[in-house]
Structure formats: structure tokens, C-alpha cells
Design a protein around this nucleic acid. Structure first.
Lengths: 336, 336
DNA sequence: TAAGATAGTGCAATCGCTTGCACATAGAAT
DNA sequence: ATTCTATGTGCAAGCGATTGCACTATCTTA
């Protein structure tokens, strides 16, 4: 800000002390006498002194802030994760800087690099659906930037990760469709790159196997852009319908809502006849028509766990070499 | 970040120049010869030099970043505004820091003050529903922090503001209900503090007047917490229903969805009988059942306009004294 | 009583970058 | 030949905070 605030120097001058004494008093160092501390603290309080975080960052080479990259904050799942992140971060005196990749690799890289140059102390990231090359992250990581992945994680990157039990979530949803009598179950899913895509596909297949239903590749549709473009979805729906599915298992928030929308728009007459089960953290599912069975991820908790892991890495005295991948259970909310 | 990157000093040493020359060359100042500039630029490129924004902020006392305060990023309206803000900000080389107030005054103040201490160059803010005392903003403003309000604006604060045409939006929605034959139209709205609450109430009343329908205060319900607590909404609905409204005009995104939810939960039998018209920027309205008429705000555009105004203030050479309040039209999307 | 221990404080460098001013060199003008 | 004007660079201070080291009292201890 261009305007004046009181600095440590002002306090020093006013009290006839040196800046170092003031600084140490404020940081409650043992060298300073109780008396002086009290004096300084009282005066600082009086003039409403706030340490300049910029100056501190420069000196300490850290910023007490952590960066977050998600594809879209408008996505309920991600905004819930962010709330979880904030809840822990603020508790531990970190601030949070949010960036959106909008599912674009280029944007993601740009944002990460900007955050890094702003001295974030650590990074929480869910990869964009376009991202395949994560060398730029490896590079930052190698230079010492702690990174924790959540939701969309890379396989070959040794660090903490937090994910939902995607396999089980997908299995449960598919099984639910089967148990309600569906036999031709399509699967609408995200870009093949993503970890969640693979895991959820596996869960879907496993459920089919359990009930002796043959896997038909043509029933699986991938959306490169994660449903960011409605045309992409309508195309997928259009290709799927001739195969006469009686159920669809959808593997992401945006795809789930987008698919129902596309169905209603292009084929309103069948929209209510196809049973839908999909991953979504929307808190509006109860309002949807047709209604659906949803797989909810523990988004808030995911944010919390990821943040705890990240902060533990940031504050570790020695380099961390043991990494965990936490897997959190999803919840199946059956259609009413 | 704790790890080394090349600095201006490194470049200077490598090229046998002084740091000042390098700095000036990088900033393309006229004093430096073309030759030297080329040399420096080439080398900087080679070592992938990135100016340290922290150091720059400290020195220049500005950060090329703007702060945003909204109540909740999970709210579609706000996430769209944020996208609008980003679209302009990135174009003009500003970065954006998002904070959520969660409709809490305390949180809002805390966040604003933190942003200010992080040397944001300007602030874009939509007030929380709890906020009544904006002295802390006045204070920062007086000290030189440019502020632009959007959506929820204070009356007695001389600066740029960007709002929707709330009066007309409310009028149109209410008129629509009347024209479809409703006569007992309730109004569910936000905290009385908010500008939007007053403007929308006025629009609602005006429509009643136009069609010679008496205004009944008991049909208006205020929600202090903007629908953050479902209990608040259920209570409001419970009080409203005995009055047998045949239509409800709802004045905010969260209230609109929350109200339908409450209706469905507490009185499913009447949920479909009451016509609903409400402000919402949800892109899922088409999926809702009961369906509703919605008033959409030009959220993206609002973000853009607000950002342009803010940046013009930030970059103005002399203090700005002429302020505008831009009013953007809403769009009525009729129930199908 | 002299020397060492201890406590409390200040000096000054440093983080990376910007910028006013001084300085050096070279060609132009007198 | 001397002075002046460009032109291009470098010196050094400063942004606000932290911290190793040095310094001065005061108090112990032999």
C-alpha cells in the first residue's frame, strides 16, 4: 500500500530503543527484559502496529501463505475443499492464495509459477484435466517447494497425496444401478489422463464383473475438457443414446450436472427413463429433476487433511522422505 | 520460497555490470544502450530470471495484486464475478487474491486488514450481510487504498460502485408473478442492512403498486444470515405458509435455492403449488424441480467493470474525485 | 580485588530490487 | 584548446524486518 503505517523503526524512535530490541521484544525473545517487552507491546498495541508481511517474507524467505490450484472455484467440490483448507490454514496462521486453472494446462503452469515466485511456502494442487507433463512441478519440488496433491494426483511423484476412495465410490454407484435392475450401464467420464478417471473406471468395471455383466468399451465416453464445453457433453450423450443405456454412471461433478442438462435439452423424453448415478458434491442435488443417486466426496475433510500434511512438510526440520497417500471414503446418497 | 533463484545481482556479476544497470535494462529504461539491454535480456532469459515480486513490492510499496472479498466462492454469482475480475486483471498484469467473509463481519474485517497489510494495490468488495460498520474501510480508504464496491454497496461511501439494476430486476420478477395470476406474493430476502435488500424490496413494492395489490409487511421475511443456516430458512418458510402465499419473490442466490429446499423438505405437498421467482445465477436452474423464474445478474460483466474502475483508480496520477455508480441490467429467465 | 559470567541492548549487514545522483567518456560547440 | 552536452554506467541509500556479534553494566566467584 502506498500509505504509511507505523513500522518497527517508529516504535524504536518513540521509545528510545533500537529496532533490534523492538523486533526481539515483539517476537518475545528471551534476551529482552520483561519490562522492555511490556513497554514495546503496549506501545505497539497503541499505534496498532502490524508487521509488514512483505518485509518479513523478503528477509525470512517465506511468506506464511500456501497456494491452492483447482480447476474451478465454481465447482462445489472444490469450493468445499477450499473451505477445509482455510479452516486448518488460518488456525495455524497461514494464509491462502487461490488460483484457477480452468482445466487448462497452460493456465495451471502459469499460476503455479506465479505463486512460487510470490514465495508461497507450499502448494496444494488438483491437476487440470489437460495436464500430462508435470515436470515443472517436479522442478519446483526439487528446489524445495513442498507440494501436496489432492483429488487429481499424479502416479509417479513421491509426495503426500489425499484422494477419495474413487474405486469404491464408483463401485458402489455402479452396483446401486445394477441392484435397481439396470443392465446397460454407460460410463461418462473425464479425460483419460486423470488419476480419478482410471480409478473410477476400475470401480465401474469391478461392479460389472461382480454381477456378471460384460464390459462394453463403447459405453464409456471420455470428455477431454471435463465438461467445460457443453458441446462436448451433448456429443457424448448423442453417441451414447443409440446404445440404449438404462443407467449412466458419471464420474465428476461438472459432468454429472452437465450430462443431465444435455439429456434434458437434447432428449427430454428419455431423460427421466435413464437412471443416473454420479459423483457430485452439489448441495442442490435434492432440487434436481430427474433426481439422481450421488457419490459425495468428503471434500472439506480432504482439504483439511491435505493442509495438515502440507504444513507438516513446511515445518519439518529435516527433509521429509516418508510419504502417505490418504484415502477418504465417499458417501453414496441414494435417489429418493 | 527457501530455494535459490537467480537474482539481479547474479546477472550483474556474470556480465560484469552493476545491479542498477541490469535493473534498468530489464525495465527497458531509456538510459541504457540497446546493446547492453540485449545482452542483459538474453542472459536473463537464459538463466530463466524472474524478478522477485516480494522485493519489488517492498521497494515500490505496491504489489500488482488486488484483493477480493466475497461472502462465499461457492455461490455461483460470486464465482462468476471473480471470473470477470480475473479476466481483466490478468490482462493488465495484476494478480488477484480471493478471500471469503462467509457473511461474517468479523471475518470480513480480518481478511481486509490482512490483505491491506500484504500491500494489495486495491480492493474489490461485496459486503457481508452482517456488516453495518464500515469505518475500518473508510480508514483504509483515507490512507490511500483504492476501493470499489460491487453488488452489496454502502450508501454513504464516496467511491466507484457497480451494482445490478436491483430495482428493475425485482420489479420484473414480481410483475411476472402477478401477470401469471398470483396475488398473494411473499418476499423472502436478505439482511436489512444490505443495499440489495432495500433496492429489491422497493422493486417488489413498486410492482405491487402498479397492479393495485396492497403491500402486506407480514409477507416479507428477512434472513439475517443470508440463508447460511438452513434453520433460518425453514423458520421463515414456516411463518410464511400460514399466510397462504401463491407466489414468492426471493432476493438472493442462496436464499432462492435454500427456500426451495426448505419448502420441499417441510411442505412437499405445497412446494409445487407456489410460484417462485428469485435472484439466482446458478447455472443449474434448468435442473430444478419445482422449476422457477430466475433473475440473473450480469455477474461476469460486473466483475469486469468493477476491475476496470479499480485499476483506473490505482493507476490515476492524481486522486480521483469523480465517482460513478454503474448499474447493470439483470435478465429475467421465465420458468418453462 | 581482579577476572569471568550473565543479562540486556545496539550496530550493522542482509533479503532483492529501484532510483536519484554522481561520474566518466566522447563528440560538439565556442 | 576549453567548455558544454549527451549518453551510458555505477554508487549507495532505502523499503521493513531479522539476527549474529559486539558492547556495557552488574553480579559472582576465587
Amino acid at each position: 500500500m502506498r500509505f504509511e503505517t507505523s513500522t518497527i523503526k517508529d516504535i524504536a524512535k518513540a521509545l528510545g530503543l533500537s529496532t533490534s530490541t523492538v523486533s526481539r521484544a515483539l517476537r518475545d525473545r528471551y534476551e529482552i527484559s520483561e519490562e522492555t517487552k511490556k513497554l514495546v507491546l503496549a506501545y505497539a498495541e497503541k499505534v496498532n502496529y502490524r508487521a509488514n508481511p512483505i518485509a518479513r517474507s523478503l528477509k525470512e524467505r517465506r511468506s506464511y501463505s500456501i497456494g491452492i490450484i483447482v480447476s474451478e472455484i465454481a465447482n462445489n467440490f472444490f469450493s468445499q475443499v477450499i473451505n477445509g483448507i482455510e479452516s486448518i490454514a488460518y488456525d495455524k496462521d497461514y494464509h491462502v492464495i487461490i488460483s484457477q486453472s480452468h482445466e487448462s494446462y497452460k493456465q495451471e503452469k502459469l499460476n503455479v509459477e506465479h505463486l512460487a515466485s510470490r514465495s508461497i511456502d507450499g502448494l496444494l494442487i488438483a491437476l487440470s484435466s489437460e495436464t500430462q507433463d508435470i515436470d515443472y512441478l517436479r522442478h519446483l519440488y526439487a528446489k524445495g517447494l513442498p507440494i501436496v496433491f489432492f483429488d487429481r494426483v499424479p502416479q509417479d511423484f513421491e509426495t503426500h497425496k489425499v484422494i477419495a476412495n474413487n474405486f469404491k465410490g464408483a463401485f458402489d454407484a455402479t452396483e446401486h444401478l445394477i441392484l435397481s435392475g439396470k443392465r446397460t450401464i454407460a460410463h461418462l467420464t473425464n479425460s483419460e489422463n486423470l488419476s480419478i478417471t482410471k480409478e473410477r473406471l476400475a470401480g465401474y468395471k469391478a461392479a460389472l464383473v461382480k454381477y456378471h455383466i460384460g464390459f462394453r468399451p463403447e459405453l464409456v465416453k471420455y470428455c477431454q475438457h471435463g465438461g467445460m464445453h457443453s458441446a462436448e457433453l451433448e456429443e457424448a450423450v448423442k453417441e451414447l443414446l443409440p446404445l440404449k443405456p438404462d443407467g449412466i454412471f458419471i464420474s465428476s461433478d461438472r459432468l454429472t450436472t452437465g450430462c443431465i442438462m444435455a439429456l434434458k435439452k437434447t432428449n427430454p423424453e428419455v431423460a427421466h427413463k435413464i437412471a443416473i448415478a454420479g459423483f457430485t458434491n452439489s448441495n442442490l442435488v435434492e432440487l434436481f429433476s430427474p433426481s439422481l443417486t450421488s457419490v459425495k466426496q468428503p471434500a472439506f475433510e480432504m482439504g483439511q487433511v491435505a493442509t495438515e500434511l502440507l504444513i507438516s512438510m513446511i515445518e519439518a526440520k529435516r527433509p521429509v522422505t516418508e510419504f502417505e497417500t490418504k484415502v477418504l471414503d465417499t458417501e453414496l446418497v441414494k435417489k429418493r
